[in-house]
């Protein structure tokens, strides 16, 4: 104990400019972050100058601080963290209905 609990999966709501950067660039840059094994990006909102993204990152002991830093380096910004999984395995998603 006392060790930082490993992040296995994180879903981020983010935005990037429409000009100068693509979601391919964002995915490639995020994949370089320590612990990341896979990145999935879905465009869920298109504005004139801004793309709203749903970013799913999975891996082993993902460094969230670095993820945020990389997103800022590509010109993006984190709006919110919509889901996070910490632990030894990824549990099934629950419902509150």
């Amino acid at each position: 104990m006392g060790q930082r609990p490993p992040i296995r999966r994180i879903v981020i709501d983010a935005a990037i400019p429409t000009k100068g950067v693509t979601i391919v660039d964002v995915a490639r840059e995020l994949y370089k972050v320590a612990g990341v094994k896979a990145v999935r990006i879905t465009v869920d909102d298109v504005d004139v100058d801004v793309l709203g993204l749903a970013i799913v990152v999975e891996g082993v002991d993902i460094d969230y601080g670095e993820l945020e830093e990389v997103l800022e380096k590509v010109g993006g910004v984190v709006h919110s963290i919509d889901e996070v999984v910490v632990g030894e395995y990824v549990p099934e998603a629950g419902t509150t209905a």
């Binding site: 400019p17 000009k19 100068g20 840059e29 100058d49 801004v50 910004v77």
Partner: peptide, 26 residues
């Protein structure tokens, strides 16, 4: 100027002095 405006629209704050991939492409 275009990059500054684009970054402002994304983050809704002035980001002066921060170099991003968008700046490099520009």
């Amino acid at each position: 100027r275009e990059v500054r405006e684009a970054i402002y629209r994304v983050s809704l704050r002035e980001e002066r002095g921060k170099w991003t991939l968008v700046h490099s492409r520009a």
